[in-house]
Amino acid sequence: MNAKRTDFLATVVINLIVATVVGILVFLLAYILISGLPHVSWSFLTGTTDAFSGAGGIGVQLFNSFYLLILTMLISVPISLGAGIYLAEYAKDNWRTSLIRSAIEVLSSLPSVVVGLFGFLLFVVKFKIGFSVISGAIALTFFNLPLLTRNIEESLSAVSRSQREAGLSLGLSKWKTEIGIILPVALPGIVTGIVLSAGRVFGEAAALIYTAGQSAPVTNFGDWNPMDPASPLNPFRPAETLAVHIWKVNTEGLANNAAQLSAAASAVLIIAVLLFNLGARLLGNFLYRRVTASK
């Protein structure tokens, strides 16, 4: 076989593989949207759920999902940023660093049910926090940390050494070089990592069943004092998320339109994830342009 023919065949095969992947994705998306969207209405998006049957709207769950996501990110992004910077810049290449790396890998391979049960035993039972947004956020942080740390470390390491040398040669401290020069260049990669992990958090159910709980008490959206028990911002209230709601409606829902309810909720979940991805990317690009003065 000559080089031209080989090349042609390889191109065809690669294109086929890509088409398969894209095809599956499009099919899944289309299936979920087509079966779910007709049942989505304004009252479904904003309404409250009947605690017994699981019927009714998903307003509270939708809010809970976003609130939990934001809270999780607020906890996990700073920690993994610190850990990522440490691993990329400060950690020496020795047994201690490889121990840390192995620990991170083990943490990332923990099944989410295990993380959920651990969070249940430690935060919900032992620390007596109860089923709450904050318990869920901390459990999800455990998930997020390894992925995000790894991603931030890799994004930082990918920035050319010569940039670091330039900073140091101007008398800038290592820290100042890292924060002011390396981090902005690594920003697009870091944003991608945050978006990916956010998608995972948004869709997570198993770990939240035991930590954030399966009930969505009606909250008073007029009350924004985080200390009030009825306030949506209160981190100590139980908060069933959208993904948990889908699971629950499907397994123990007593409503006679349970299938439609879960299909509609799934469609909303997917749209929310897509919107979040898009928003995070736009924000990331905007920030990148601001700090690097590029077009």
């Binding site: 050319s160 010569s162 040398e165 900073g167 101007l170 020069i181 902005p184 590029s294």
Partner: peptide, 15 residues
Amino acid sequence: RHIGMVFQRPNPFAK
């Protein structure tokens, strides 16, 4: 700050 350095490959900051 007193002894500056310029490197082999141009390395301006991405700013």
